[in-house]
Design a protein around this nucleic acid. Structure first.
Lengths: 356, 356
DNA sequence: GTTTAGCACTCAGAAAGTTCGAGTGCTAAA
DNA sequence: TTTAGCACTCGAACTTTCTGAGTGCTAAAC
């Protein structure tokens, strides 16, 4: 059953007020916020109705109302006013994205920026469908050491300095370089078999195991480059009244510091959209009292990234979603070589309605 | 004035009990801990004396005693029993150090290990006297892009993929490579002047500004490689009773998350030793209620690193110091190509006695 | 049927009061 | 110098009281 206009207005007022104050909202507050031309008694009647329908609840009789997850859901889906970013905000984001640097550094910086902008912990997740090596370069340093440089899909560059206790010739390194470029490029991790390594070893006449060293680094690099997740700004939780109990904060922070947990957040197939997961909509127990807002972006070369923030259910969804959408749009443009499907920074919220 | 044997025993008992329990220690507890053959009244008399001399204090009349910074200082300098690491502990550390990986990754891993081992936030700081580039390699990819690979003193390798909106020849890249290797190696950041860049540009016939791009990356790399600091495991503070107030934890975490703050901790010229800074001995206001334990190591090539932990003044100094000393020793061996001055893992505590 | 004034009622949280006991300092005797 | 003994202190925990924001209901007004 659809809600009357008035009830919607009231629900919106309760949600927005509660987001601000973190305290149960009473009928008088609603009255003054909505400017509805009726008395507080009327509002109370409406509140009872919203309560019955499950959009609001009371922490205890004779307290004001607090939105339920269902209430937030409706708010996010229908009631929320789209928040335009200020010029300063878009400027700040553009500047932040501009600073270049390696891929990982960029993600780090983006995470910090999201934290800065929203004052919630931010998370960045990236996942590649299939990473392969595009180019292998070996740099001979001296008879005991050389550098491996790998160019991966997604234009990430990885390197490693190898130092060995025995000597080898520059010629061997050159030969290895050529062979690796012909046999190991465009190949996914699982295709680098012991057999391939052994045959390469024979082909190049490597009796010292250099081939395995290099192949080992390839495998390691490919497997660690498949994706990653990190958080920043966890300490911001401590400022929030819902985490007045350090125990609670600790639990959530612990959960977030495990990158496997984070990675599991990325399952949702949203692209170019912003996704909001409210309280119990989260699969993880540790997030049942919190909300997560995620925006995904196209990182090129079949890579997909997600940037998000975690906060209390009482979160300024509208501002957070707008900021993340803008950042994600910028990243798509920067990395994916094109705008996101919905256009750069266009806010298009898709919720998880399964629980609503 | 030197303390009598009995008073030392009592002081030690108070400190160790308080480290354990975080609660003021009474005369009866001391009695049962020391097994001293006297009555609690005698202990009380001694406690009053220790109180008068400034080693202990009472949170309020009729509470037990708590060590002062001076008390901890004496404990650390004279009373503390050296803690031997268990086989499991040394094993764990050795394993942790073994896992190789790039320099930064290693430091990250070491920080996490220190956190794991001590359950306090750990910090890693590194500082190089003068970083220079040992070798420059340019890898031509296509007419619009190439990779810069830099080998720095300390055997760190840095790279960057450069993508430009105009074409250049492979020949130019090769020439640039040669010139950079001859003119820019062994040179500190401040010696890379606009004049040098301009003359290089002329020498190599670069009209497109590639030289500046590469030199810019050199400068950037040299300046960011001079040192760095990072923290891990901040959330561990939340478990401690002294940080029951989230506000307090937040302040400290904030302080620690600023790497400049961390860097300023490294001023103390200890080498191969473990340094303990107790509460007010810390220069920073934010650390006045906390203690910091630092161990430094030789990272080779004139680089010096520090690994440390931050915790409440009530910290198990002996265990923490032993663990850090062992880690630092291992790092010296691993990176510096030799044992620390005091031998691998030998514990040698040097305090800051200026305030004692 | 909807709205509103009016009022009794509820209940968390603050404030004030009470109890409890660990631990003290002091005294006087050993 | 040590110790038994004892009055005293004071925070922590628990109880009680007070307060007021906010409710739900009723009955009259629109």
């Amino acid at each position: 059953m659809a809600l009357s206009e008035r009830r919607k207005k009231i629900l919106r007022a309760v949600v927005e007020e509660y987001i601000d104050s973190a305290e149960p909202v009473g009928s008088n507050t609603v009255l003054s916020k909505t400017g509805l031309g009726c008395s507080s008694a009327t509002i109370r009647n409406e509140l009872v109705a919203l309560d019955k329908e499950g959009y609001l609840e009371q922490p205890h009789t004779s307290a004001g109302r607090v939105p339920t997850a269902k209430g937030y859901r409706l708010y996010v889906n229908e009631l929320m006013r789209e928040r335009e970013l200020t010029h300063d905000e878009t400027e700040a984001i553009n500047r932040g994205l501009d600073m270049g640097g390696g891929n990982e550094k960029l993600m780090d910086a983006v995470g910090h920026m999201a934290t800065e902008l929203t004052s919630y912990p931010a998370l960045t997740i990236s996942a590649a469908a299939a990473v392969t090596v595009k180019r292998v370069e070996l740099i001979y340093l001296d008879s005991n050491s050389f550098i491996i440089v790998l160019l991966l899909t997604g234009d990430t560059v990885k390197n490693k300095l190898v130092h060995l206790p025995f000597s080898f010739s520059e010629l061997l390194i050159t030969r290895l370089s050529a062979v690796f470029n012909s046999s190991f490029t465009g190949v996914t991790e699982d295709r680098i078999t012991p057999e391939l390594i052994a045959s390469t070893e024979r082909a190049v006449g490597d009796t010292m195991g250099l081939t395995s060293v290099i192949a080992g680094f390839l495998i390691e690099t490919l497997s660690t480059s498949k994706g990653g997740a990190s958080v920043s700004g966890e300490a911001n939780l401590l400022k929030l009244p819902e985490f007045r109990d350090p125990e609670k904060a600790h639990k959530l922070i612990n959960y977030l510091s495990n990158s496997e947990n984070l990675a599991s957040l990325s399952t949702s197939p949203d692209f170019g959209d912003v996704k909001v997961l409210i309280g119990p909509e989260n699969a993880a127990l540790e997030l049942k009292d919190s909300s997560v807002v995620l925006a995904s972006y196209n990182a090129g070369d079949n890579m997909r990234g997600i940037i998000g923030v975690v906060g209390p259910t009482r979160m300024d969804y509208s501002a957070v979603a707008a900021k993340l959408a803008y950042i994600a749009g910028g990243l798509s443009k920067l990395l994916g070589g094109g705008a996101a499907t919905n256009g750069y920074g266009k806010l298009m919220i898709k919720g998880d309605d399964s629980n609503a």
